[in-house]
Protein backbone atom coordinates (compact mmCIF):
# COMPACT_ATOMS: atom_id res chain seq x y z
CA UNK A 1 0.00 0.00 0.00
CA UNK A 2 1.32 3.42 -0.74
CA UNK A 3 -1.17 5.01 1.61
CA UNK A 4 -0.95 3.96 5.23
CA UNK A 5 -4.11 4.81 7.11
CA UNK A 6 -4.29 5.74 10.71
CA UNK A 7 -6.88 3.29 11.99
CA UNK A 8 -7.77 5.40 15.03
CA UNK A 9 -8.77 8.38 12.92
CA UNK A 10 -11.60 8.90 10.50
CA UNK A 11 -10.73 8.16 6.91
CA UNK A 12 -11.82 10.95 4.56
CA UNK A 13 -14.84 9.53 2.75
CA UNK A 14 -16.38 10.98 -0.39
CA UNK A 15 -19.42 13.18 0.10
CA UNK A 16 -22.15 11.95 -2.22
CA UNK A 17 -24.78 14.10 -3.91
CA UNK A 18 -27.59 13.13 -6.32
CA UNK A 19 -25.31 13.68 -9.32
CA UNK A 20 -22.49 11.43 -8.11
CA UNK A 21 -24.47 8.78 -6.24
CA UNK A 22 -24.40 6.18 -9.03
CA UNK A 23 -20.62 6.49 -9.33
CA UNK A 24 -19.97 5.86 -5.65
CA UNK A 25 -22.64 3.15 -5.39
CA UNK A 26 -20.84 1.28 -8.18
CA UNK A 27 -17.51 1.72 -6.40
CA UNK A 28 -18.96 0.09 -3.30
CA UNK A 29 -19.81 -2.87 -5.55
CA UNK A 30 -16.23 -2.90 -6.84
CA UNK A 31 -17.12 -1.47 -10.20
CA UNK A 32 -15.68 1.60 -11.88
CA UNK A 33 -18.31 3.30 -14.04
CA UNK A 34 -18.42 6.55 -15.95
CA UNK A 35 -21.27 8.78 -16.90
CA UNK A 36 -22.36 8.58 -20.52
CA UNK A 37 -24.75 10.89 -22.29
CA UNK A 38 -27.93 8.96 -23.05
CA UNK A 39 -28.30 10.82 -26.34
CA UNK A 40 -24.94 11.60 -27.92
CA UNK A 41 -22.92 8.96 -26.09
CA UNK A 42 -20.20 11.31 -24.83
CA UNK A 43 -18.39 10.00 -21.74
CA UNK A 44 -17.68 12.36 -18.89
CA UNK A 45 -16.08 12.54 -15.47
CA UNK A 46 -16.62 13.84 -12.81
CA UNK A 47 -20.39 13.24 -12.98
CA UNK A 48 -22.58 16.18 -13.84
CA UNK A 49 -26.31 16.44 -14.50
CA UNK A 50 -26.10 17.64 -18.10
CA UNK A 51 -24.15 16.69 -21.22
CA UNK A 52 -21.87 19.63 -22.02
CA UNK A 53 -22.01 18.77 -25.72
CA UNK A 54 -25.70 18.24 -26.47
CA UNK A 55 -27.24 19.40 -23.11
CA UNK A 56 -29.23 16.23 -22.74
CA UNK A 57 -30.34 15.31 -19.23
CA UNK A 58 -30.44 11.58 -20.07
CA UNK A 59 -27.70 9.71 -18.29
CA UNK A 60 -26.31 6.20 -18.68
CA UNK A 61 -23.48 4.60 -16.77
CA UNK A 62 -20.77 2.72 -18.66
CA UNK A 63 -18.36 0.26 -17.03
CA UNK A 64 -14.75 1.34 -17.39
CA UNK A 65 -11.96 -0.85 -18.74
CA UNK A 66 -10.15 0.07 -15.56
CA UNK A 67 -6.91 0.34 -17.53
CA UNK A 68 -4.87 3.44 -18.03
CA UNK A 69 -1.59 5.25 -17.51
CA UNK A 70 -0.21 7.60 -14.88
CA UNK A 71 -0.70 11.14 -16.19
CA UNK A 72 0.72 13.07 -13.22
CA UNK A 73 1.50 12.62 -9.52
CA UNK A 74 2.54 14.38 -6.36
CA UNK A 75 3.99 13.14 -3.08
CA UNK A 76 2.62 14.56 0.15
CA UNK A 77 5.59 14.89 2.53
CA UNK A 78 3.34 16.13 5.32
CA UNK A 79 -0.12 14.67 5.72
CA UNK A 80 -3.06 16.99 5.13
CA UNK A 81 -5.36 14.68 7.12
CA UNK A 82 -4.93 12.82 10.42
CA UNK A 83 -6.41 9.69 8.87
CA UNK A 84 -3.56 9.29 6.37
CA UNK A 85 0.14 8.88 7.11
CA UNK A 86 2.70 10.82 5.06
CA UNK A 87 4.50 10.40 2.80
CA UNK A 88 1.98 9.16 0.27
CA UNK A 89 1.45 9.71 -3.44
CA UNK A 90 -1.63 11.01 -5.19
CA UNK A 91 -1.86 10.12 -8.89
CA UNK A 92 -3.83 11.47 -11.81
CA UNK A 93 -4.66 8.48 -14.00
CA UNK A 94 -5.62 8.77 -17.64
CA UNK A 95 -7.89 5.86 -18.46
CA UNK A 96 -8.02 4.22 -21.85
CA UNK A 97 -11.47 5.79 -22.37
CA UNK A 98 -9.74 9.18 -22.30
CA UNK A 99 -11.09 10.25 -18.92
CA UNK A 100 -8.92 11.29 -16.00
CA UNK A 101 -9.35 10.30 -12.38
CA UNK A 102 -7.57 11.21 -9.12
CA UNK A 103 -6.49 8.18 -7.11
CA UNK A 104 -3.71 6.42 -5.20
CA UNK A 105 -1.46 3.49 -6.10
CA UNK A 106 -1.16 0.21 -4.23
CA UNK A 107 1.78 -2.20 -3.80
CA UNK A 108 4.44 0.20 -4.96
CA UNK A 109 6.98 2.57 -3.40
CA UNK A 110 6.40 6.30 -3.78
CA UNK A 111 9.63 6.79 -5.72
CA UNK A 112 8.81 4.01 -8.19
CA UNK A 113 5.68 5.74 -9.49
CA UNK A 114 6.42 7.29 -12.90
CA UNK A 115 4.43 9.28 -15.40
CA UNK A 116 3.47 7.02 -18.30
CA UNK A 117 3.35 3.86 -16.18
CA UNK A 118 0.57 1.44 -17.15
CA UNK A 119 -1.93 0.77 -14.41
CA UNK A 120 -5.21 -1.00 -13.72
CA UNK A 121 -7.95 -0.42 -11.19
CA UNK A 122 -8.22 -2.32 -7.92
CA UNK A 123 -10.62 -1.70 -5.08
CA UNK A 124 -9.27 -0.85 -1.70
CA UNK A 125 -11.67 -2.04 0.96
CA UNK A 126 -11.02 0.46 3.74
CA UNK A 127 -14.02 -0.12 5.97
CA UNK A 128 -17.25 -2.09 5.76
CA UNK A 129 -18.95 0.71 3.89
CA UNK A 130 -16.05 2.36 2.11
CA UNK A 131 -14.32 1.08 -0.99
CA UNK A 132 -12.06 3.32 -3.03
CA UNK A 133 -10.92 2.74 -6.60
CA UNK A 134 -7.11 2.63 -6.61
CA UNK A 135 -4.53 1.52 -9.13
CA UNK A 136 -1.84 -1.13 -9.48
CA UNK A 137 1.11 -1.21 -11.84
CA UNK A 138 0.65 -3.57 -14.80
CA UNK A 139 3.81 -5.36 -15.90
Amino acid sequence: MTVNYNKNEMIPAPVVDPDSKAFWDAVQNQELVFQKCGDCGRLRHPPRPVCPKCRSLNIEWEPSSGKGTIYSKTIYRKSPHPGMKAPFTVVLVELDEGLKLISNMVDIKNDDIKIGMQVEVVFDNLTDDLNLPKFRKVD
Partner: peptide, 10 residues
Protein backbone atom coordinates in the same frame (compact mmCIF):
# COMPACT_ATOMS: atom_id res chain seq x y z
CA UNK B 1 -35.42 15.00 -5.87
CA UNK B 2 -32.33 16.24 -7.69
CA UNK B 3 -29.25 18.35 -7.18
CA UNK B 4 -29.32 22.13 -7.17
CA UNK B 5 -26.74 22.00 -9.96
CA UNK B 6 -29.16 20.03 -12.12
CA UNK B 7 -31.96 22.45 -11.27
CA UNK B 8 -29.78 25.41 -12.26
CA UNK B 9 -28.85 23.69 -15.55
CA UNK B 10 -32.49 22.93 -16.35
Amino acid sequence: GRSELQMACE
